[in-house]
Design a binder for these strands. Structure first.
Lengths: 203, 203
DNA sequence: CAAAAAACTGAACGCACATACAAAAATTTA
DNA sequence: TAAATTTTTGTATGTGCGTTCAGTTTTTTG
């Protein structure tokens, strides 16, 4: 049992190291430049190690994307937990989608590559769907019982696409701070609501 | 001279055929699945022909992207020419960014791939910059002399990122019609302006 | 401290690819 | 039509990749 425990620890450690190495290589060389050799080198191991801990290169990529998605979703969740009013929840959702230190050109580009690859990769597509469903569900929790369904959907789509668009532009290196991005989306959110609706959300 | 004329015609024809073939392969197999062999097959020619008419594979790709960009920009330009009021120009710009028959998942995905590749490909990045500069300049022609500079920039950014975001979502297969997309962006544009400002734009 | 198991190495293999190129076919020229 | 030129072909070449695996080192077991 000691043996099992230790073996598991080492396995998890190596997997994590490889995933993080893959992430660094991804950031520096893009999706196309991610070779097994580079990943193993970056992790300080030899070329064959990847097949020992993963089924193949595709497996490492998927694990990497899943990890990143989890980090982003957790950032939103932690902010949401503290919010008191519906408007506060909206602020938390928006702010959580532009985390300090994560809203950077290389990370945005990585996300973009995965979006593009989703068209031909079912596993990526599934991750993407989960991610969007979570965002939609979070937004729904803000507007449910306050706005009619059609109106809620329009606003959610407008805010969601703006968030995506801001990430896309960040990927091209445009100088958008998390602060400015959050302010912009919030300003649009405010503009889309009537005064009465806004008051209701702040109650 | 007859010789030169004919030679040029054949050359241009072959280049166009190859570019269109490349475009079809791109749509079907993605950026990663675009091989010279597939392109030449699709064009009904043999494997070596690509090197004869282009410097290499990269050259065909670039020509393809440039052609697509030109088509989109022309769609906007033709709409702009007919508009009378400033608000009409805004409508034309937005509508021109969601052309019927072009706002499709596979085309959106193609554009996304190029955006992602821009990070490591200087030529793509340059095309992207030109494209955005044109959009910005078009928008500026709507708001110049009507809105203060800071306000114009905020609105242009909001609308631009929404357009990008809608294309991105279209790439993931989301069922967004050109009509709904245009309506959404216009609704946001209207919401962002005061009544007085709107009246000014419609004059 | 052996014996056994786990962790790791790095060379080797097969495959897919972009490109080069000599030869062939088609077309133009004189 | 014969020579010259352009156009096209299909194979050959070299490169880089992911994966495999026999063997080596390290760690655990008894």
């Amino acid at each position: 049992m000691t043996k099992i425990a230790f073996r598991t620890r080492i396995e998890d450690l190596r997997r994590r190291e490889l995933i993080q190495a893959a992430h660094r290589v991804f950031m520096q060389h893009g999706l196309g430049g991610m070779t097994t050799k580079r990943i193993c080198e970056e992790a300080g191991m030899s070329a064959g190690i990847l097949s020992y801990y993963f089924k193949g290169k595709e497996d490492v990529l998927f694990a990497m994307v899943r990890l990143n998605n989890r980090l982003l979703m957790e950032a939103v969740a932690s902010g949401l937990a503290q919010a008191k009013t519906r408007w506060g929840r909206l602020q938390a959702i928006i702010a959580g989608n532009f985390p300090e230190g994560l809203f950077e050109p290389n990370i945005a580009n990585a996300w973009l590559s995965v979006c593009a690859a989703s068209a031909t990769n079912a596993r990526y597509a599934r991750l993407q769907r989960i991610f969007y469903a979570r965002l939609q569900s979070n937004l729904a929790s803000v507007f449910r019982d306050v706005l009619p369904d059609a109106r809620f959907k329009q606003i959610a789509l407008a805010l969601g696409t703006m968030i995506d668009g801001l990430w896309l532009r960040r990927a091209t290196g445009e100088a958008l701070s998390p602060h400015d991005s959050i302010a912009l989306v919030l300003a649009v959110a405010a503009a889309l609501l009537t005064e009465a609706e806004r008051a209701q959300l702040q109650a």
